Computed example of a mutant assay.
Amino acid sequence: MWNITKEAKGKFSRCNLLPIHESDHDWEIVLREAEEEGEDIIAALKADLLEVKEELLQILPDCFIPYVENGTLNQPTLPKTIRENYLQWMREADREFEQVLDAAHENTAHAVRSLPAAVQEVFNESLHDSIIERIEREGDTLHLYINTESGFQTKSMIHFTFRQIRAEDTDDPIQVGQWLVYNELQKTGDSFHFRVLFDSPEAEWTITMKHLDAEYFYRPCLYTVLQDEGKMEETSFSEFLAQLNPEHDYWFITPHVTCAIKELSENIVIENGNIEWAQNKMVVTVGKACFTYALDAYNPIEFIYTNVYEDPYAHQNEPVAMDELEQAALSDDIELQVRAWNTMYTNPKELADIINCVLYKMEITEENEMIRTVYVNHFYKEGILTESIIEKYHTIID
Rank of each mutant, 00 (worst) to 15 (best):
A203Y: 10
I207P: 07
R219L: 09
F217T: 05
D228Q: 14
M232A: 08
K231N: 09
K210H: 13
L222S: 04
S236F: 04
S238A: 12
P201I: 08
F198V: 04
T208F: 06
P220D: 06
H211V: 15
T208H: 05
V225N: 10
V225P: 12
K231R: 10
E202Y: 15
V196C: 02
V196M: 01
F194L: 11
Y216H: 12
M232E: 05
L212R: 02
E202S: 15
M209F: 14
T208Y: 05
S200A: 13
T208N: 00
L222G: 01
F194I: 04
A203V: 09
M209D: 02
P220I: 07
G230C: 00
L197G: 03
V225R: 14
F198S: 04
Y216E: 11
V196N: 04
E233T: 11
T206I: 13
R195I: 05
T235P: 00
H211L: 10
Y223H: 10
E229Q: 09
E204H: 05
L226Q: 06
P220C: 12
M209H: 06
S238P: 07
D199N: 11
C221Q: 11
S236D: 05
W205M: 02
Y223T: 08
C221D: 09
H211R: 09
P201V: 04
S236K: 04
S238I: 14
